[in-house]
Amino acid sequence: MNNNEKDKKSLIDDYKLHITILFISTISLGIGTINIPLINGFNLVLLPIMYSLFLAVLFYIYKPAKWINKSQSKTCAEILLILISPLIVKLAIASGENIDILFNVGPALLLKELGTVGTVIIGLPIALLLGFKREAIGMTSSICREPQLAVLIDKYGFDSDEVKGFFVVYLIGIVLGTIFISILTNILCYLVPLHPYSYALASGIGSTSMNVAAVSSLIALYPALSDKLLALSGLSNMISVVFSIYVYIFISLPLTEKLYEKFHKYFN
């Protein structure tokens, strides 16, 4: 952040922008979480985070507030660099607070975090085949949720190709992820019959909405195990939210970088 030139306006001054953001986020939180029951006991869960992202994008496109333009868009990118910090602190505090669960529940919960290696191995070749370049690193190094965003922005900067790639998967994940993962649960339980507990642990992938979608499908398939499945998946999701960032920083992201450097030339 070497933005200390004298002519540059401070990030704080644009009060109209901040008021607009306050307006968007307060409306979104005011609407709150909405459950839409679909077929087979599957609920489509809509969260305030989705509304605020889409509202903000719509504000930029349709300009109901005339003062939001390209320069505000750039200001927001810089502000984000600072704002991700409190989010990380919040997650870190949750991990410090729950450190004993980690010792008690056994290795499966933690080891399952290494499943993100599967993300890279399956995702990266497909992304490269489809012609993505550096974006592929942001897209396929993780399931692309908030903690990983913070790491990517910090490492590559908001305007980098890696972060653009991340946002592609992030956005599509928000729109289609819940539906996709609930269908996937049904298919996988049929084709790859691992123990339902394993799928319950796997459903905690760090996205609350996807977690809920996956575990509801799982419970529909194994109603007798419902309590245990819910408990395992909730715990697992918490662990994901909290610890996935360390797996990401030290394992998945460096691994994706290495594989990209090694193989991207074969895909051109």
Binding site: L114, I122, L188
Partner: peptide, 13 residues
């Protein structure tokens, strides 16, 4: 990406 993460985690778990 979702498929890889989900199946990878389930197998390891």
């Amino acid at each position: 990406v979702i498929f890889g993460t989900y199946l990878g985690s389930a197998v390891i778990a």
